[in-house]
Design a protein around this nucleic acid. Structure first.
Length: 116
DNA sequence: AGCTTGACCGACC
DNA sequence: TGGTCGGCCAAGC
């Protein structure tokens, strides 16, 4: 029998979304990191998935490697980062960017991480 | 069957 | 600090 009659979401996409849900509050993962964590696809594939189905998960926790806020949803993202106390940094132009060195999450291996 | 596009990345200058 | 270049992988036209 058929499994689902709802809009078919590729399994790869479901995995990506699953990882997005795993990212703890106040932390972020890059598109590339998610792809590596899944050991499949690439940053662009993850980006595509997020563009299509990201609305169903904490999309603001999946970001670009350079820490630039999601174009078009910067304000929305910024609100979340502030609420979650995600490490941010400000550029010379006064633009808000993520402090990737501190905000980047390795996937659950940071239990003993510490440094201020 | 080939070219363009995209919520990308790292290296270089 | 910031811009450019080449590489990357899949979907659309």
């Amino acid at each position: 029998m058929s499994e689902e009659s709802l809009p078919e979401i590729p399994e790869y996409a479901e995995r990506v979304l699953e990882v997005a849900e795993l990212i703890p509050s106040g932390r972020v993962m890059t598109y590339g990191d998610v792809a590596e964590w899944l050991d499949e696809g690439g940053p662009r594939q993850v980006g595509r998935v997020m563009a299509l189905y990201g609305g169903a998960v904490p999309w603001w926790r999946v970001v670009r490697a350079d820490g630039v806020l999601l174009p078009g949803s910067e304000l929305r993202a910024l609100e979340h980062y502030r609420a979650e106390a995600t490490p941010l940094r400000t550029t010379g132009a006064g633009e808000h960017r993520l402090d990737m060195r501190r905000a980047r999450w390795d996937g659950g291996n940071d239990s003993a991480r510490a440094h201020t």
